[in-house]
Simulated scan of single mutants.
Amino acid sequence: MLVFISGCSLEFDSQGEVENAPTSAEVENLLKVVFLDVGQGASQLLISPSGKTMLIDAGNNDQEEHMVQYLQQYGVDRLDIVIGTHPDADHIGGLDAVIDHVEVGKVYMPKVSNNTKTFESLLRSIKNKGLKVSSAKAGIKLDWDDQVDVTMLSPILTGLDNNNMSAVVKVTYGDTSFLLTGDAESISEKEMIDSGEDLQADVLLVGHHGSKTSTSLRFLNQVNPKYAVIQVGENSYGHPKETILERLRKKNVEVYRNDLQGTVEFTSDGQNYQISKER
């Protein structure tokens, strides 16, 4: 039985309850991928089997305080890697506060900018910390944890709009895998398919909050996930779109949503998952 370790008070779902406390060996062999509830935005916190940390995105500007609290809740005072998938505010809005409050190793962002105060504030925080931005692009393997393969699959092209320039990250631990897509849309999805990279993943972060511009049928067939997470909150866009929800249902994908279930955690021992949700 896989033992679940939680950094906050979450309920077990139908995956099963755990009665025995974890041993130190079991703790050391777990990968945790947390889809933080940041409302209509996105943020994923990853903690590796050896305790390395990675944060991908940090929600909108109004989530700054929540992001700092989340890191405290999970006992994170250093982020070995920070990734801003693209410069839209609902993904990078809270990153400046995160960088201001914790020690940071490396920062990755795609070569695309935005003429906004949010983007400028992030760049200022990076500069004030004495950090430099490494280019997020396809083909990069991140030096994070010897037991975990972390590869960027996109962006492949240059000069596209912000969403299609999103950094897409595949995380593989043993026989388990996650595909974290930012706001990548159909153009980026096609480029990833055409690249010939292995896109299959057990857990898919549904692109662009469940917008119909993402999660094309061809891409979904390539990924062929067992689980999907939609990072979405109250919004006026109609996210997630019924078209996408129906597409996932037809593929028998088990869907988790931040707006319905709060923060969602996946914990992997390299073979199995324990899934928990906040509500």
Rank of each mutant, 00 (worst) to 15 (best):
G262C: 09
S43V: 04
M54H: 08
L2S: 15
L245W: 07
V27T: 12
L36T: 08
S214V: 06
D145N: 06
E64H: 03
T172N: 13
C8E: 14
R124S: 13
L220P: 00
N128C: 10
V264R: 12
S216Y: 03
V27K: 15
T243D: 03
L160H: 06
H208D: 11
G39I: 10
G59R: 12
K170V: 07
Q222M: 07
L122W: 06
L45D: 03
T215P: 00
M1V: 15
S14Q: 13
Q69I: 10
E234Q: 13
N221D: 07
N272K: 13
V232A: 04
E242P: 07
N224D: 15
N128H: 04
I156D: 05
T158S: 13
P155I: 15
L220G: 05
S177G: 04
I56D: 01
G41Q: 00
F219D: 04
I5G: 02
K117M: 11
V102D: 09
G238S: 12
V232M: 05
I126L: 12
A228G: 11
K111G: 01
M165L: 10
E28P: 02
Q40E: 12
S268T: 01
I275C: 11
V82E: 08
K241I: 01
D100F: 12
S6A: 12
H101P: 03
H239I: 03
L204F: 11
K32F: 01
S121G: 10
N115Y: 04
D269K: 06
L71I: 06
D62P: 00
L260R: 09
D100I: 04
R257T: 14
A97V: 05
